[in-house]
């Protein structure tokens, strides 16, 4: 059913996302804006969250792939640090898949679209993979950022959309564990009946800004599913494949937590 190995793909795409002659792609990605945001975020990346990474050689330099990670925090600081880490190391712009309420957020929606964030719908993701893009999906969805402190590093709902795309488009999945994000902006409570801008709940964080917790990003070996593309419609195949990616992320989390604890002990 699956093999692991180098994240090269049958169809290769560009290292830099394709943009139209206008300089924008159809979703609004604008490379000068990407570079500007990367410059502005330097302090947060290097000094505030002191991001380090291992296994980044698993991120393909060309061609489509799906990055799959744990998710947490009131705002997507983890997704931002992952985006920055991949951009700084490979020059590739990760196309992060956001929840469907994000386009309703003023200012945020525009900024996100300029740096490559795309609303989570099938036609959007299909287009990205067919154009050789590096897509980041957080299968926990909004349940990830809604974790209580007791649920830190315990994966919540693990949706199957990412494996469906991986099987249908024959692209590898790179499992990722982000350590540190879950403590950086813990949630005190969430108010489920308040849907500001269509968000599923109103988060009440412990602090107004994220805490300066050190981030460690662990990239795992690519997972390739050898199932025929038609099997992407089979719920059992998808459930089995999603269990494999979930297991891979859980192992990376466990390994990352041990490595962090050992680092603290030294």
């Amino acid at each position: 059913m699956l093999t692991t190995g180098p994240a090269t793909c049958a169809s290769s795409g560009p290292a830099i996302p394709r943009t139209e002659p206008t300089g924008y792609d159809v979703f609004g990605l604008h490379l000068p804006e990407v570079e500007r945001v990367a410059r502005w975020s330097r302090f947060a990346f290097e000094r505030y969250f002191r991001v380090d990474a291992s296994g980044h050689e698993h991120v393909p330099l060309v061609g489509p792939a799906i990055l799959v990670s744990n998710h947490s925090g009131m705002l997507p600081v983890d997704a931002t640090m992952l985006w920055l880490d991949v951009f700084r190391r490979t020059g590739r712009v990760v196309r992060t898949i956001a929840d469907r309420f994000v386009p309703r957020l003023p200012f945020v929606s525009t900024l996100f679209s300029r740096v490559g964030v795309v609303s989570g719908s099938r036609p959007n993701v299909r287009w990205l993979l067919e154009h050789g893009e590096l897509v980041a999906i957080f299968p926990e969805g909004t349940t990830g950022p809604g974790k209580s402190m007791a649920q830190h590093y315990h994966l919540q709902d693990w949706r199957v959309g990412h494996v469906e795309f991986a099987i249908r488009h024959r692209v590898p999945i790179i499992p990722i564990a982000i350590i540190g994000a879950e403590e950086s902006w813990p949630l005190l409570a969430r108010i489920p009946h308040v849907h500001l801008f269509g968000a599923p709940y109103l988060p009440l964080p412990v602090s107004l800004v994220p805490l300066p917790v050190r981030f460690h990003i662990h990239y795992g070996a690519p997972i390739r599913f050898d199932d025929p593309p038609a099997s992407a419609d089979d719920p059992e195949v998808l459930a089995r494949a999603a269990a494999i990616t979930r297991g891979a992320v859980e192992r990376l989390i466990a390994h990352g937590l041990i490595a962090r604890d050992q680092g603290r002990g030294q």
């Binding site: 609303s119 719908s121 036609p123 269509g198």
Partner: peptide, 12 residues
Amino acid sequence: RAAEPTLLDEDA
């Protein structure tokens, strides 16, 4: 809509 795809194919 916010929840609809940004990219509109013929099945949108």
